[in-house]
């Protein structure tokens, strides 16, 4: 099969070559089309908006959307209303949005943690959430190792340690 060179191809081999180019060309075309569509719809495919996008006025008050970011350290408050709502601030280290939520928080929820909340802005810029999901990063660590680091004072969650490298929260179009 490999004996005959590139020139003087038999009709069968020429057909094979044509089909190869057809498939490769079709795939390249398809990939380009899909890439363009995804790039074009990037804003619509995003699962959440970051605080910077909210600050830039990308979402109108009353419209339901998802807000993603880190729970700001020291921002969690429990005013103790009848519905047991909590208040906290979501930040992407560039902008902030205050969030109010009455409901069950996920296990991973705490200050410094990434979250994605579903809700809408009220008239005063407060985000009223109906659902809060925890987003974690790609780093895994044994619990005991973290305990040991905490005892030794070398653990830095929220400031450069694992859990802060959250590129997913970088403002859109950086």
């Amino acid at each position: 099969m490999a004996a005959s060179g590139g020139r003087g191809l038999s009709p069968a081999r020429r057909r094979k070559r044509t089909r190869l180019y057809l498939v490769l060309g079709g795939l390249a075309f398809l990939a380009l089309a899909v890439g363009l569509v995804l790039a074009g719809f990037r804003d619509n495919i995003v699962f959440f908006f970051g605080p910077s996008e909210v600050a830039a006025g990308k979402v109108d008050p009353g419209r339901t959307f998802r807000l993603g970011g880190l729970v700001k350290d020291g921002s969690l408050a429990r005013p103790g209303g009848t519905d047991g709502a909590v208040l906290f601030t979501v930040t992407d280290n560039a902008a902030e949005v205050r969030v109010r939520f009455a409901g069950l928080l996920p296990d991973l929820f705490r200050e410094g943690q990434g979250i994605v909340a579903l809700g809408a802005l009220d008239g005063e810029g407060l985000f009223v959430a109906d659902e809060v999901l925890a987003k974690h990063d790609e780093n895994y660590m044994p619990a005991e190792a973290v305990e040991a680091m905490k005892r030794a004072g070398t653990w830095q969650h929220g400031e450069g340690g694992p859990g802060t490298a959250e590129p997913g929260y970088a403002p859109e179009g950086q």
Binding site: F47, F48, G50, G68, L133, K135, H136, N139, Y140, G168
Partner: peptide, 28 residues
């Protein structure tokens, strides 16, 4: 490739790759 790069190109709830992260696997 859409699956692979979805977590880098879009905002997703799913975290980025642990095994194929920049500084080697982000796992002990």
């Amino acid at each position: 490739p859409v699956i692979k790069f979805s977590v880098y190109f879009f905002n997703t709830l799913h975290q980025q790759s642990t095994l194929f992260s920049a500084g080697g696997p982000a796992m002990p």
